[in-house]
Structures are given as C-alpha cells and as structure tokens.
C-alpha cells in the first residue's frame, strides 16, 4: 500500500507554504517529518485530512488499485489531546466501537483495548475530564488506532509525555507499523532518528527524503541541519 501525494500546492494570502509537492509514502514504515517552525508541517497534515482547502493537488491510496484518500483512511493524532470531557473513558470507547463496529476488524472487548494502551483499571470509569494529560493522549491515540486507518498522522504526539508513557507509545507505534503508513511530525531529532525508518524534511515548501543508509546518527543530524538551513 502506498500514499501518493501529487502536485500539492497551498498558499496563504501571497505566502506559498507548500509548493508542488510530489511524494510517495509506503506501508510498514514510520516517516519522521522534520521542518523548521512555520515550515508547513501542520498545514501539510491539515491538507491531507481535508481540514483546509488547498490550491491544487491530489492524494491517492494505491493498493491493488488506486483511489482518492477519504476521511476514513486517515487517523490524525493532534499534539494536544482532545477528548469529550463529559464521558468516561469506557463510555467514549463504547460509543466509538458501537458506531464503527462494522468497519473494525477483529473487534475486541473494551477492556482489551484499555489493556493494550496500558490504561489502568481504576481509570477506565473515570470521566475524561479528570484524566491526566498523558492519559488523554493515550485515549486519543487509542481511538485513532482502533479505527485502523490506513494512514496515521501524528503531530508531535510524544513531546509532552513523561518518559514512561512516551516509551510505551513508541513501542506501540513500532508494533502497529507493518499495517499502516505512519507519518510522524516532530522537532526532536533524536526521537525522529530512534523511532522513524525514514526521515523526510519539509523545507521551502517541498518534501525531501534524507537518505540514511550507511551513515551514523551524527552525520545524519549534520545532514538534516544542513538541509534545513540551506538557502533556496
């Protein structure tokens, strides 16, 4: 399975943010999306997720055949977790599972999902309002993963988690990557290098893959910094 981005262009007023992007993402890999502040990483995600209109471009999903990417193909995990605070964790999952039961393959019980995400038994029936930041983040991630979208967009998801939760999440992402196309935006280079299979940088409105074959992390870092600071 491949995600093909074709001729994507997005302008805000006169400012060209994404310039004629052509790129292919492949299943089974975690892509680390790096870029400077304001480079357009979130804009890129928002375009993919159809949150904003873009000037031109198509997103295609290629399996045996090609088709346009639809909302249900995408799971988008935001850096700040948003959960319906008037529900408990269990109620939120129940609702989600009930309305999506036809689409979900090998449906498990609610508690199995909680176990998978390391959410403690005593927290499961608490209102989401009273969940800690990390727990809300886990819930958000969980819902996005159960839906089993082909493409998973993660916008700085691990940055403000404690070390234990962040490690749990990393392992979890690695465990599910073989069935998904995962694009992971971050500012932390070490995280990108340790978690991601491919490094893609967004610079001057273009996506560019940095080849990491046969080079050390140190050389890779220099290469990335070099690429991000070079003039157009």
């Amino acid at each position: 399975m491949r995600l093909i981005v074709k001729d994507l262009t997005k302008k805000f007023d006169q400012k060209q943010v994404l310039t004629d992007i052509n790129f292919t993402f492949e299943q089974g890999k975690i892509y680390g999306l790096l870029g400077r502040n304001g480079a357009g990483k979130t804009t890129f995600f928002n375009c993919l997720n159809k949150d904003i209109l873009f000037d031109s471009g198509t997103f295609l999903l290629e399996d045996e055949s090609q088709k346009e990417v639809t909302l249900s193909d995408i799971g988008y995990v935001l850096s700040t977790p948003n959960v319906p605070e008037f529900l408990t964790g269990r109620e939120f999952l129940k609702f989600f599972l009930e309305i999506n039961q036809k689409e979900i393959k090998d449906l498990k019980s609610i508690d199995e999902y909680f176990d998978f995400m390391h959410i403690e038994v005593e927290d499961r029936d608490k209102l989401l309002k009273d969940y800690s930041y990390g727990m809300k983040n886990k819930m958000q991630m969980l819902v996005n993963i159960i839906a089993n979208p082909k493409i998973l967009l993660l916008d700085e998801p691990l940055t403000s988690l404690d070390v234990v939760v962040a490690e749990e999440m990393k392992q979890m992402l690695k465990s599910i990557k073989k069935d998904h196309i995962i694009i992971f935006s971050t500012h932390i280079m070490e995280l990108a290098l340790s978690l991601c299979d491919e490094i893609v940088i967004l610079n001057h409105g273009k996506l560019e893959e940095i080849d990491r074959n046969n080079i050390s992390d140190k050389e890779m870092k220099d290469k990335i910094i070099g690429a991000l600071t070079e003039e157009e």
Binding site: L71, S72, Y76, N82, V83, P84, F86, V143, A147
Partner: peptide, 21 residues
C-alpha cells in the same frame, strides 16, 4: 464547547454518516 470541540478533531466523527445520525 463540551463535546464537538474535542470530537471534531477525530476523523470518524466528521464522516457524513456520523454527523447526520
């Protein structure tokens, strides 16, 4: 404020079927 604000960030919640139901 108490519901859609967070729910609309989920793709599944924005599917026509879910919105209309």
């Amino acid at each position: 404020m108490n519901c859609d604000h967070s729910m609309l960030t989920y793709g599944f919640y924005r599917e026509p079927k879910v919105i209309l139901n």
